[in-house]
Design a binder for these strands. Structure first.
Length: 212
DNA sequence: CTCTGGATTAGCT
DNA sequence: GCTAATCCAGAGC
């Protein structure tokens, strides 16, 4: 494995070669809003050509299946949303606007099609690789489509279990409840009343949030 | 089969 | 604030 150079602050956060503790499946089987909050502070890790790309999750959105008009699975099962019907702990990756991918973490028991959209991460490792993948743009990993591009996450990872290479979730830091902001989701105005539900979560004062 | 619009982003006005 | 870029799932016929 190629050696990764980290700043001191990031080294404290992400011990890339020691004690890699992946999130257990149980983590994902809980209430989706709880999981969306609990995912804040966890590390998303991508192994690409033997290099580590990683970041701390700083912004998420909960999508509540049959109970949520904004959720892709609201109207039931279809080819696209199949992964959401699986047991929690797998990825649901969809393609949007003809050019972007978005990455979701499936939650809940099998048959309950709920998920958490990962909207932003704070880069911790493999930053040079992310810059290349993002064509050296300034904003590397804020916004669901941006982080997918920076980590080369695409449809290949649809239904991928998130405790396995080359894409997994690693135990990170716990964010205290009083540092979690709860507000409305982005881009769901079509969903009527559900557009006003506070299902978006982010870390207070974090510099890598996609939108204030 | 055709048509429409989207869990977005960047760049311009 | 506005809109182009660009594809495919879902809906309607």
């Amino acid at each position: 494995m190629k050696k990764i150079i980290l700043t001191e602050k990031n080294r404290l956060l992400f011990n890339y070669n020691e004690k890699i503790e992946k999130l257990p499946v149980d983590f994902f089987l809980d209430d989706t809003q709880k999981v969306a909050k609990a995912l804040l502070g966890q590390f998303l890790v991508r192994i690409l050509n033997g290099n580590i790309i990683a970041g701390k999750i700083v912004e998420t959105e909960a999508y509540l299946g049959f109970n949520d008009p904004a959720c892709h699975s609201y109207k039931g099962k279809s080819e696209r949303v199949k992964p959401m019907f699986n047991q929690g702990g797998v990825a649901y990756v969809y393609f949007i606007y003809g050019m972007y991918h978005c990455f979701n973490v499936v939650t809940q028991q099998k048959g309950v099609p709920e998920a958490v959209l990962i909207r932003a991460i704070e880069p911790l490792a493999g930053i040079d690789i992310m810059k290349k993948l993002r064509d050296y743009r300034k904003n590397l990993t804020s916004g669901p489509a941006n982080l997918c591009k920076a980590m080369e996450i695409d449809k290949r990872f649809n239904n991928h279990p998130l405790n396995a290479n080359p894409l997994y979730l690693q135990k990170g830091v716990q964010i205290p409840d009083n540092q979690i902001i709860k507000t409305t989701r982005i881009g769901v105005n079509y969903a009527g009343e559900a557009a006003r539900w506070n299902l978006r979560f982010y870390i207070l004062n974090n510099q890598f949030i996609s939108k204030k």
